[in-house]
Design a binder for these strands. Structure first.
Lengths: 296, 296
DNA sequence: ATCGATCGATACCGTGAGGGCATCGCGTGG
DNA sequence: CCACGCGATGCCCTCACGGTATCGATCGAT
């Protein structure tokens, strides 16, 4: 093994002091072993680093070059432990965050802002995944945090991030497309476009309960909201969609609010594995437990 | 003393192999001391770098950060010896080159080109100094190479870089200002502007010999050629200047060539101290001794 | 020229950090 | 439940490295 850090530190000290005795004192050691350190260094580099002029020593040109390298290395060595500790307690690091297409419209921006406030030096890595894939990624530690809809498997911890009610999306030519006030689900006489029980189990179940299983299952099924809007637009039926999607203005689709009697809220949760060792996640979770206000 | 290079290398090996046994093998050692190295590392950092999962190990987030730092350090460590050796044999480094104002016009560009060809990765640092200051700087190792005029003190080595003859500079209104062919020094009836015997000993002596000491000493003395041209322009007399200065077109000054009988060449030499330990200089000198052709 | 001071190099000795061998504890897979 | 694999631990030994004493050379002062 050639080149030890002690040799490098010794070399830097001698180079700066231009004097073995003073350098040894600075290093809290005596001069002879320091001399040997430098000799060993020069031997393993096969290069003279100092001109011994009887009266003190002077760096050679090669020594000056080596000194620069040593300074860079020692500077890195200096900051490495602190940087590592910051990463260990989650002050720095990377959070891999997954989200659903729906979540992206409603809350992703605010959520990222909140994360940025709580863990300022942490980098967020984003990935769009449907909820089932998110749970798999969370379990496999491919992702640190997911924005998902219920039901959330018991193995995960979660926090309610957003709650909103459902509104009715109707095709442009539909009788309910004109008008302004709330409508009742009983006014909808034609088919619903339903959520896929596999891809969007949560919305499927809620909507099925709202309109009655018998009427709900008759039309197309879709798992992603943009697909549903396309189907509504094509006149295939009405759909129940989260209110925040209204911000997504789609040509040929009108929205109507529901009677308070029929209104039903759907939720979006931040979700993580308690086994996840990512300190940045742990720090964020800790912060959330102390103050669950999302705008704090 | 915390953190040894062995620990860092051991850590990188384990991080890359995700396995203490294989890492130890790669490092040509056995597993137990490697385990202790990592333990010591984690203890001095006060950070867990690996998750021990019974089945192999996995880097923590902090470990990943530390790994990056280690890689950077070890990469520096890898290249440092080679860079130092290159500096030691003069392949890289800095050459501090001094030149006179005169030299700058005539040969500096070609000279730097030649240096660049012979020592491609060497940086040149330039400085304008009059010849006596150059010798002092060369002796004090403040400068590696000087472009000077004779006489050159015996302690230095030198190489003829440029030789040119002198031409006559006359004021615009002077009788000799018109005409094209060579003139004889005997046609000059008025005063000469002479070189200072201190600042430009060489040119002073040559010019004095050319025109005769008695006639030479009568007018102004200047040490720098631009000053002389200003004096000529002011009509204070004629001057003998190196031919290369003709390239410097000065309003109100005309140049006449001298009869071959009167022509006299002046030389410029590259000059260095044989004691100078700068390897870049040594390499250049070596190259010059093998092939003194300046355009090679 | 000589002597003394200063500074780096060398000789020798002792200790402890670090590596090897043997073994343990534990978690996993057959 | 057993056997295997892997990291952790205990013990021993060696040698690398630091300390003390001293040498040798160079430079400055007398």
């Amino acid at each position: 093994m050639d080149l030890s850090l002690q040799q490098l530190k010794g070399f830097v000290a001698v180079a700066e002091e231009q004097h073995f005795g003073r350098a040894a004192e600075r290093l809290s050691m005596t001069q002879p072993p320091l001399t040997r350190q430098i000799q060993g260094l020069e031997r393993s580099l096969a290069v003279s680093l100092f001109d011994r002029t009887g009266r003190g020593v002077r760096l050679t040109a090669a020594g000056a070059v080596f000194l620069e390298h040593c300074r860079r290395m020692l500077a890195l060595l200096e900051i490495a432990p602190e940087a590592t500790r910051r990463a260990a307690d989650g002050q720095t690091g990377t959070l891999r965050i997954a989200f659903t297409a729906i979540g992206a419209y409603a809350v992703l921006a605010d959520f990222l802002t909140m994360v940025g406030r709580r863990t300022p030096a942490v980098t967020a890595e984003l990935m769009e995944l449907v909820s089932p894939d998110q749970f798999e990624a969370l379990a496999g530690l491919k992702v640190d945090l997911g924005l998902v809809r219920p039901p959330i498997p018991e193995q995960f911890e979660s926090l309610l991030v957003h709650s909103e009610d459902l509104v009715l999306a109707v095709p442009a030519g539909h009788p309910l497309a004109v008008g302004d006030g709330p409508v009742s689900l009983s006014e909808v006489t034609d088919d619903y476009i339903g959520y896929s029980p596999e891809g969007s189990r949560y919305l499927h179940d809620i909507c099925a309960a709202m309109v009655g299983m018998n009427r709900y299952a008759v039309s197309q099924l879709a798992s992603q909201v943009p697909t549903m809007l396309a189907l509504v637009r094509a006149g295939l039926g009405c759909a129940l969609i989260p209110r925040s999607i209204m911000a997504m203005r789609v040509q040929g689709v009108s929205y109507r609010e529901l009677d308070s009697a029929d209104a039903h809220s759907v939720t979006l949760h931040a979700c993580w594995s308690p086994d996840n060792p990512n300190p940045a996640l742990q720090r964020l979770v800790e912060s959330l437990q102390q103050n669950p206000q999302l705008d704090a």
